[in-house]
Design a protein around this nucleic acid. Structure first.
Lengths: 238, 238
DNA sequence: AGCGCACTACGTACGCTGTACGTAACTAGG
DNA sequence: CCTAGTTACGTACAGCGTACGTAGTGCGCT
């Protein structure tokens, strides 16, 4: 009977161990760690079921006993990364605390450059995600707004961090992974952009480009964006 | 001779037509349209080189004459979508205009649900992207801040739109594409979440969950986020 | 005018992916 | 103790992006 019930799978809802049968050779943590190691070294595309299995020293298909779908492997990876968050004692200054959280998330992403690419697909509510949410809510304790507004602040901030850091990383990776140098690519881009600007079809953009001198400081842009978002929720700033 | 020069490729910098040889059977627009049609019908995973070629009625490898890498096909798709933006005459109310732009972007993404998944990887500066940027700058003419701040406003707003709409879509798609109903999945999730909450490890999250009654109105959340971001740039609101 | 070459077209083939399925070994619960 | 539910894993399949080779086409130059 009953063939495999096509039951909704949330990997966190499935027990890691069910008693019957031989002892599993690995824990979820083992598997997540192996996948993270590979992703850090070879990039996200290096994370294949075969590769992870070899890293663990088991057959490819054995992995499917632990991780029903590859997508769940991603979920494990994101959760593993969540453990790197330092859940510090809130200081009472919610702005400073949230800024620190954001900066730390950015640092984690720079350590694990594949995280931003994975974030959108992951639904969340992994154990460590829950712990991080709880931590953020603790930091926001001094902020006198409804709980719903707080979760919206957290969501907006996390979204901005992911988007901006993802951009930083994409820009850097493109340079690294391509068979040409960043200068070459930039030259071609600028040439193209220059040719477009020369058409006169984009006067305002042209002006904006002219106004800026020197390369963009992506980190400064990131910081300013954070401040803006925090401003938008700060009763003191309006 | 000279083997293929490993020159930086930006598809927009490469001329569509070079004079010599037989006439190309398709334009870039044809190819982009075919790919968009497939993505709309079968999802982004349906967009394979083979599938697009068949849709166009040519051999798979012929496509590579027009599109050197699959990544460039994505770039074409994003550009094609950009043409759907209505470049209306700015009204003089930059807030209202930018709100309209954001809502329209969201509508486009709901028509082409694969767009958010594609956005992060695309570097931009396609013709239609440039036109849209120029349009946004025109809408921001009445706003009295440096040009750099305007581009940062545009970037932040676009990022928020993509993130939030991407979330809306992911939530909806998960329900559609899985072999179980949304109710079933939700039930499992809530059961899991409930079990986590029951542990008492997440008191603040529990409170936040209890406070809200009824399902979340994602669109309302989206609108509130937009208003927050606009507030953060509005000299009148501080 | 006509030659040569850059271009289009496309079939074949390779290495890789996720994973369905079948079989053998193992162990805890009834 | 038996048996049912696990774990382990080799094999196999359909599908992917794309490198490469070959054949045909027509513009630009001499």
């Amino acid at each position: 009977m009953a063939g495999r019930a096509a039951v909704p799978e949330v990997i966190w809802a499935r027990p890691e161990r069910t008693g019957r049968g031989p002892k599993p050779a690995f824990t979820r943590a083992d598997i997540a760690a192996a996948a993270v190691r590979i992703a850090d070294a070879d990039g996200l595309d290096g994370v294949t079921m075969r590769h992870v299995a070899t890293e663990l020293g088991c057959g490819t298909m054995s992995l499917y006993n632990y991780v029903p779908r590859k997508e769940d492997l991603y979920e494990l990876m994101i959760d593993a990364i969540g453990a790197e968050h330092e859940m510090f004692e809130p200081t009472g200054d919610w702005r400073a605390d949230m800024l620190r959280n954001a900066e730390e998330t950015r640092a984690i992403m720079h350590r694990h450059t594949w995280v931003p690419r994975l974030m959108p697909g992951v639904f969340g509510f992994s154990p460590n995600t829950l712990r991080y949410l709880e931590h953020c809510l603790a930091c926001l304790e001094p902020l006198d707004v409804p709980a719903g507004t707080k979760t919206e602040l957290i969501a907006l901030l996390n979204g901005v961090v992911t988007t901006y850091t993802g951009n930083e990383i994409a820009t850097a990776e493109r340079a690294r992974s391509m068979p040409w140098t960043a200068e070459e690519e930039n030259a071609v881009r600028m040439a193209y952009l220059g040719s477009q600007i020369a058409t006169g079809a984009y006067p305002r953009m042209t002006a904006a480009f002219m106004e800026q001198s020197g390369p963009v400081d992506l980190e400064a842009v990131f910081r300013r964006a954070l401040e803006r978002v925090l401003d938008a929720f700060d009763p003191e700033s309006r």
